[in-house]
Design a binder for these strands. Structure first.
Length: 871
DNA sequence: CCGATCACG
DNA sequence: ACGTACGTGATCGGG
């Protein structure tokens, strides 16, 4: 059997991966997409070829290199994108860690390295596979040298293979002739001029007939298109030079030692560490899982007998830290005695060799196991679980101080992730790989063990980053507050909701008819695509913006057309009504439980800024701005004997901005309870306070909002329908009025650029990796995020403190009233009528005293028989 | 499963 | 010249 070597064109593949794989960054903000794509291709090739030898070549004439596939320019070279450049040294380090030989030699093209090594190996009687994204390498194909060109097609990599015969088949010429074709046609991206007037078609035809340019030149007078004939003679020197440029040197002066390229086991400890750091979860699974985790797995024990379980419980109660996992048992063990909740197995860990998975059974029902778990939780120092709130309905812990939610901790350390699985935490904190295909018991043991073992390092990291108080004093108590709110739910009048939906439905049918009539055809009005075609093609309305997929039919576009085209007005009304019906009337109805209430979820680990999010259903976006939508709030009612109290912070974000920036003007204004928007208008538009018009005040309000969002003249101009220039002038005037704010925002961005993150008043961090981007737009986005996150995040912190305080005081005083909703700056309480005044006082005090700022925090409160009235 | 749209703060 | 406001979630249509 012939031995085989795989030769990889490093820069070419890295480049291809960079453009083929969507942008990825690890939590340190390092771009990793090219490295990831490169390694995927590498592993795919290794799996297929199983070669004895492997070498990766890099050419070293940074900052540019010759074969840049995606350079869409002529002559000049675009410098390598920063996001790609930073990945080059990393991939080299990763390859070295994998014991892969790298060959690079200053002044030599990667092609010349590949060509030379390929020739040497073929002469030794080996098979060669060259992996490159560059078709120039096709000239190297022979009977034993295969050129492999990876293509990314919809996320999947497919590889095109070329032996000499395949080149001939596809291009009509042999690999050697391929050089001459290129000499004639030229290549802009390689600075090969070629012969003017000769393109791919002509060049191929000439070479197919004459074999090379020399022979073609000898028969120049016979060449078919007269233009080619004339130009080949006229530009003969240029053709010869092109051929030299196009020819890969297979006798370059390099040292190549086959033994050094010997391909061994790439799954080294060092490589594992790199993959970990780069957060390549999928690729990590290629490493030998057994080796790293066998030790721990050997301590996993399943328990089915009550006396053994009892021993474990007794021992666990005395431990300082206990991790636990509650799981449904999807194995074939025994789901027979599973609880109504679905749980059938309790797994606890309190040491490296103390990991027990207890299965419920006839003499150990889940309810009993839950009780024992509560007892443990309340007797140890630290009781750790992932997503604790989820289990509180069955694990009825009252002593909150011991609890540690590892999901929440992981979220605080990096709030940008989509999820916080125990697998991720195990990998990041404990260097542990978990086999995806493991059985339910093994997984449960890992989950419990990770909860146990990661609590320490998560705590250390939170302390190191100044977030431990945020965790213990705000986030952990909040877990229980949110749980109480979910349990409480909110009562909804199903009948009224249904009626509301029917009213909407009737009007929608009418509108549908009218629109079809005006359009002269029927179509799906809910399809932006179809709507765009009908309005802008068939009806010839003047079209403005476009989206990637067609015409934009967004509300701001249609708004401009509505005055002139009645059909557009109908469409807008239709849109509004169908949104109300589908999302709110019909959408909410399915969430009403048998107790007549909706128990939505409040999520604590979703947002990048620290806000809470609401799902299933989203109760934080119930209509309020438009009257018709606002009416929905009438179906949200307090239970018998109760009223709603709705309390919202007045301009909390602007107040935080005043506090953080220390701007004297703004602070003074808030202390004197002035009308901030009016005052801003007066200053920005140079108008006496009492003469500010409504329009001026509205505009100033928009500027204030813009400041909080991380202002840009474009954004403001869009919002106010004014020119960018005018918007820029507003902003300039604003910053002149409030110099402290300008300074604060600049400092915040500078800090973010320096440190890579911004911080809220209570220590919450948000990383801003976009600031390192070479992309203008991304960087701008990063700057706005840096300005907004501390403000939005601090407001979230303060509201969380208030919620915990309100909930706690209501419970401690034995009141029946309950906190039931949070809408970012607003709390809704279902208050017992007897307790109304007490609760109002508690609510106002807890909210206004939640933080001690340089400006007062003011709360507006309303009561009502439903949410519509209370708001 | 993604993009467009639109509801909220 | 670039192409944008910050943060969410649900629904729909269309691949």
């Amino acid at each position: 059997m012939r031995e085989k070597i795989v030769l990889i064109d490093g820069h070419s593949i890295l480049n291809r991966a960079f453009y083929g794989v969507p942008d990825l960054t690890n939590s340190e903000g390092l771009h990793t997409n090219a490295i990831y794509g490169f390694l995927n291709i590498l592993f795919k090739i290794l799996d297929e070829e199983k070669p004895e030898y492997l070498t990766v070549t890099f050419d070293v004439h940074a900052p540019t290199f010759r074969h840049e596939m995606y350079a869409e320019y002529k002559g000049t070279r675009k410098p390598m994108a920063e996001e790609l450049r930073q990945q080059v040294p990393v991939i080299k380090e990763v390859l070295r860690a994998m014991d892969v030989e790298i060959i690079e030699k200053a002044g030599l093209e990667a092609d010349d390295l590949l060509g030379t090594i390929s020739r040497i190996c073929e002469e030794k009687g080996m098979d060669v596979a060259i992996i490159s994204g560059d078709r120039d390498t096709l000239q190297l194909a022979t009977e034993h040298v295969k050129i492999r060109i990876p293509k990314t097609k919809q996320g999947r990599t497919e590889v095109e293979d070329y032996y000499a015969s395949d080149v001939k088949e596809k291009y009509g010429v042999t690999p050697v002739e391929f050089i001459d074709v290129k000499a004639l046609m030229g290549d802009a991206s390689d600075n090969i001029p070629g012969v003017p007037g000769v393109g791919e078609k002509t060049a191929t035809k000439i070479i197919m007939e004459y074999g090379n340019i020399e022979n073609a030149y000898a028969h120049a007078s016979e060449l078919k298109p007269p233009r080619a004939s004339k130009n080949l003679q006229e530009y003969w020197d240029q053709a010869c030079m092109s051929k030299t440029l196009a020819t890969i040197n297979t006798h370059a002066d390099i040292e190549f030692h086959l033994e050094a390229a010997k391909h061994g086991d790439p799954y080294t400890k060092e490589a594992h560490d790199y993959f970990q750091k780069l957060q390549f979860k999928n690729l990590l699974s290629r490493f030998d899982v057994e080796a790293s985790s066998n030790k721990i797995e050997s301590h996993f024990k399943e328990i089915n007998e009550k006396d053994r379980a009892e021993k474990v419980f007794k021992e666990a109660e005395k431990a300082s830290t206990v991790g636990a996992a509650l799981t449904e048992d999807n194995g074939n063990v025994l789901p027979l005695f599973a609880h109504a909740s679905g749980y059938g197995r309790l797994t606890i860990a309190y040491g490296k060799d103390k990991i027990y998975s207890i299965v419920c059974g006839p003499d150990m029902e889940m309810d009993y196991l839950f009780e024992r778990l509560v007892h443990i939780a309340e007797n140890v120092q630290t009781f750790s679980m992932f997503d604790l709130k989820k289990y509180l309905p069955v694990v009825k812990i009252t002593k909150q101080e011991n609890c540690f939610d590892a999901t929440v901790a992981a979220y605080l350390l990096n709030p940008l992730k989509n999820d916080y699985t125990y697998e991720d935490v195990a990998r990041e904190q404990l260097n542990l790989m978990i086999d995806e295909k493991a059985d339910p018991m093994t997984k449960a043991c890992y989950e419990a063990y990770t909860a146990y073992a990661a609590a320490g390092s998560l705590t250390e990291k939170m302390q190191a980053e100044g977030m431990y108080h945020l965790f213990t004093d705000i986030e952990m108590p909040l877990v229980f507050t949110l749980f109480d709110m979910e349990q409480a739910g909110i009562q909804v009048e199903a009948e009224a909701l249904k009626f509301y939906g029917e009213q909407l439905g009737a009007r929608i049918v009418e509108l549908e008819k009218e629109i079809y009539e005006m359009a002269g055809e029927t179509f799906n009005i809910n399809s932006p695509k179809q709507l765009g075609v009908v309005l802008f093609d068939h009806m010839q309305l003047p079209n403005g913006k476009k989206t990637k997929t067609g015409y934009s039919t967004a509300a701001d576009v249609l708004d401009k057309l509505a005055p002139d085209y009645p059909v557009v007005e109908k469409v807008l009304e239709y849109r509004q009504l169908s949104k109300l019906k589908s999302t709110y009337a019909d959408g909410l109805a399915v969430y009403i439980s048998s107790d007549g209430r909706i128990h939505g979820k409040f999520n604590q680990t979703i947002t990048a800024t620290g806000r809470i999010s609401s799902t299933e259903p989203n109760l934080q976006n119930i209509p309020v701005r438009m009257e018709l939508g606002r009416l929905i709030r009438k179906v949200f009612v307090p239970k018998e004997g109760c009223v709603f109290i709705d309390a919202d912070y007045s301009q909390i974000e602007l107040r935080i901005l005043a506090h953080c920036s220390g701007d004297e003007q703004l602070i003074q204004a808030y202390k004197e309870a002035r009308d901030i928007h009016r005052m801003t208008a007066s200053q920005v538009f140079h108008t006496p306070f009492d003469e500010v018009t409504d329009l001026q005040r509205r505009n100033a309000k928009a500027v204030n909002f813009g400041i909080v969002y991380g202002i840009s003249s474009f954004g403001l101009s869009q919002d106010l329908s004014i020119t960018r220039k005018e918007a820029a002038q507003y902003i300039e005037n604003y910053f002149e009025t409030y110099p402290g704010i300008k300074r604060f925002l600049d400092d915040t961005v500078a800090h973010a650029k320096e440190e890579g993150y911004v911080v809220t008043l209570f220590g919450r961090r948000r990383p801003v990796p976009e600031l390192k981007s070479s992309n203008f737009m991304q960087r701008n986005f990063g700057e706005r995020v840096a300005m907004n996150a501390p403000i939005q995040g601090s407001a979230a912190d303060i509201m969380k403190i208030a919620m915990i305080g309100v909930n706690k005081e209501l419970k401690e005083k034995g009141l029946k009233s309950k906190l039931i909703l949070q809408v970012h700056d607003e709390l809704l309480i279902e208050a017992d009528k007897e307790e109304l005044e007490t609760v109002q006082e508690i609510l106002k005090r807890q909210m206004e005293q939640a933080a001690d700022l340089d400006v007062p925090l003011i709360v507006d409160m309303h009561t009502g028989e439903n949410w519509y009235e209370a708001k």
